[in-house]
Amino acid sequence: MLELRLVQGSLFKKVLDGIKDLVNDANFDCSSTGFSLQAMDSSHVALVALLLRSEGFEHYRCDRNISMGMNLSNMAKMFKCAGNDDIITIKADDGGDTVTFMFESPTQDKISDFEMKLMSIDSEHLGIPEAEYHAIVKMPSSEFARICRDLSTIGDTVVISVSKEGVKFTTKGDIGIANIVCRQNTSVDKPEEATVIEMNEPVSLTFALRYMNSFTKATPLSNIVTISLSNELPVVVEYKIAEMGYVRFYLAPKIEE
């Protein structure tokens, strides 16, 4: 038996909206630790890892570890029927082939339940080791989204370089070249407006902008995005979910031939 109740149900909606462009089908894993997911895009270039810790739920019951295969666009269709202030409960029986989503309005005068068919998904799981990154950039998530969107009108790839100067985003296209440099800026009124750059070693890596733009669909989850870079490692773009966990996107770099 599985029963997860989240008063801030809009968070589920935001998580789904953040990942459904990248991944079509995924196994959601439930254990005493929490509700999690790891899935790659169809070309195995990008990976999403989600964790919602059990402590973040108002009610969390998971009698045994279960993995539920779901089609994310079908799930998103059902979650679209939930109001933004609704309380969302996810229920499933052990060994069952369906999952139930229950939406309660804050005043309890409207209660809906949607039953969705589960699917069997052969997913490959990758072991992601803890790594010491050469550079870690924390910046406003809206600013990062703006940069990715702007650069993708000019080129297809972005070179992200971190040096003493700051973090530089560069693209090249048929019409020309664009460089955007963000410097460390901690003297702002609100901490969520700061750009903080920790650099152990200079880094420069090239990534496909199409994927970066897809990651920024998770922007509503957090005011801050953390970008962790190491030469010759996939970049990690992380949106922390307050008091609950995170959505992390991993993207393999372009490799010089």
């Binding site: 790659m40 070309s43 195995h44 270039v45 990008a46 990976l47 490959e124 799981h125 990758l126 072991g127 992601i128 080791p129 790839t157 090239t206 496909a208 010759e232 490692l233 996939p234 991993y250 393999a252 770099p253 372009k254 490799i255 010089e256 031939e257």
Partner: peptide, 14 residues
Amino acid sequence: KSSQGRLESFFKRT
């Protein structure tokens, strides 16, 4: 010239 790397080149399957 650059080519797109794949995740399996960096992370092992479990």
